[in-house]
Amino acid sequence: MKDSNVNGTLQIARTQEMIYELRVQQAMTKQVITVEPENTMADVSRVLGENRHSGMPVMKGEEMVGIVSVEDLVRSFREGNSSQPVKQWMSKNVTTLYADEPLVHAVQKFERHGYGRFPVIDRKTKRLVGILTKVDIIRCLLQHLEIDFQDLEIRRYIPREWFSELDCDRATLSLRYHIDGANFEKAGEVSSKLKRNLQTLGLAPDVVRRIAIASFEAELNLVIFTEGGELAARVEPGRVTVTVVDNGPGIPDVELAMQPGYSTAPDWVRELGFGAGMGLPNIKNCTNELKLESKVGEGTKLQFTVFT
């Protein structure tokens, strides 16, 4: 219970931080529904009703000349008639926001003016680029909170911590998987499982991603070229080492195989979106250390390490 309270406080503080970090353009709705000054109030009534909006900018060509809201509409129905033009009832002094302003300015303006929406304009061109309502702000904050929360969940278990709690000089966790050769239907399954396990262990998202991409490429190599083999990941403080072993046929020229674009993949593999000769170069790019040993007729051992 204590933990959840701490998290609750964290989340509120984070929301406050967010309204300083996020910009109006990240929260605003870009597609703005507008009317022209010569349109009638009956048009306004229909457009607002159809779109369930409570107000919209009035545009004369590219220029914003006013804003018309439900309040104006009610006033026109009470004091005038619905065939009168928008320009007669709209508010001409429009308070706007700049697209690059921090969201906190928008929150302050909502509090100060009590309006339901603010047109958003570009600071340089002064052109209308969007519209911002309180709902837009809430939606934007919730989205970013969700992203933050996911990151927090991933980071919750830090392997270093529970490794260090184990009473030994050096703890190592080993994850082993069998990979079927020529079974393209399942190609990717092992890397998918490995990735989720590494996420559970709380490794940083970037580290997990690099290990996952390298493993996926290695797994595909086994599926495409071999009868199958084994993939083993060794997780220890500071590094993850993945070893992929197969029983043949082996790579005749390792140096050539490492060159980007070099491929011996058959056509059926290319049709499936692979075999572009980028597998081993990709693995190299994603990892900190790479060792490739191969003997034709015996097999290949690929070992790569990512520092954590």
Binding site: K195, R209, S215, F216, L272, G273, M278
Partner: peptide, 25 residues
């Protein structure tokens, strides 16, 4: 896989499960 960054949109004509695995990785 060699170029794509996180949170991207992948446009592809490849409809096999590997398109999903690639996205996941």
């Amino acid at each position: 896989l060699s170029r794509l960054k996180p949170d991207a949109l992948l446009l592809t004509g490849l409809i096999t499960p590997q398109s999903v695995y690639t996205a996941e990785m």
